[in-house]
Design a protein around this nucleic acid. Structure first.
Lengths: 182, 182
DNA sequence: ACCTGAACACCGTTCAAGT
DNA sequence: ACCTGAACACCGTTCAAGT
């Protein structure tokens, strides 16, 4: 079921995920899957949710005891997750939301929980007087956009050859702290 | 041909782009299209290239006479382009590169030219002593990732309700200059 | 930057039917 | 959180054939 779908995506990419294929590998007819998911999109939604849970765990682990080291480690961990699970990451973003239901009143979905880890880290850093006291939610959104952008450009193969995802992530985190102005 | 494809994508989204549909609207059989494009992917590649040309023009116009005002206007223009051409923007990124040929030795393709506008702006700002003298290429990649991230989160509908793309873009550009540290 | 019609190998989804 | 087989309405792509 869900596990088999995740496995397929990881091995062959999201484009290769077909209900027939999943059914075959499960030794069941494709139509039987409709007992478990109303839709192919519903299956993809669950795959995405699983991805956000994995990402959340990775961020919590990177944060560790916190501080600037933990904070920066979260940024690296985020990009690292995307680079090591490219197809899964694409399912999590990549327009699945375009057609996804307008959220069935669940403000506590898995993507929100992953995001919350970042918000909490910012609040902690603000309390330690290391981060400016802007609205933590807004700041978190900004940082999320930053690492998300780095991840996407990397997955799309848009980094000019010498550049690595790690190098760009490092530079991004440094500039994140003190800006680009002279 | 290309124009018709762009029109369809703008009106109904990239998922609705079918060779049969394009052929029909052009009053021609679908197989006839294979005279003009080797592949559906090749058509999408051309759509993407056209998008990068449009984006480049928007950035050049926003930059105008340059300076910090022009620089910030480029950031806003970038996000504005993505928000007003969501489907087109998705074709430009969104994994088309995943299967795209590994660049037929064209370092001067349309996406590179759009990127170059940003690099040039950074060089100008560095010359005016307003931006730190890091490698302009690397700095441009960082900023690109930033605005790309803002654009993608917006298109994916991940901005929490009160937040608008413009507001996030504004905050992002401000933080871009002087960082998040206290 | 030639166009067509038929055919092929795929899809997701529905539906009547069986346990 | 039941499963099946047949059928439907779609795809992209290929190919022999015609101008």
């Amino acid at each position: 079921m869900l596990l088999e779908a995740v496995r397929t995506i990881h091995a062959e990419g999201a484009a290769a995920l077909t209900l027939r294929g999943v059914g075959d590998r499960l030794g069941v007819s494709r139509t039987a899957l409709y007992r478990h998911f109303t839709d192919k999109q519903a299956l993809l939604d669950e795959v995405a949710a699983e991805g956000f849970r994995m990402l959340r765990r990775a961020l919590v682990e990177a944060w560790g005891d916190g501080g600037r080291a933990g904070f920066d480690a979260m940024g690296v961990a985020y990009v690292h997750f995307a680079v090591t699970h490219p197809s899964h990451y694409r399912v999590m973003f990549g327009g699945a939301a375009e057609k996804r239901q307008p959220r069935p009143e669940s403000d506590d979905d898995d993507s929100t929980e992953a995001f919350q880890v970042l918000v909490d880290a910012i609040v902690a850093e603000q309390a330690a007087n290391r981060v400016r006291r802007d609205d933590p939610q807004a700041l978190a959104l900004y940082i999320w956009a930053m690492v998300h952008g780095v991840a996407m450009l990397t997955l799309d193969g848009l980094l000019p050859p010498p550049t690595t995802a790690e190098a760009l992530a490092g530079l991004a985190i440094a500039r994140l702290h003190d800006g680009i102005d002279r």
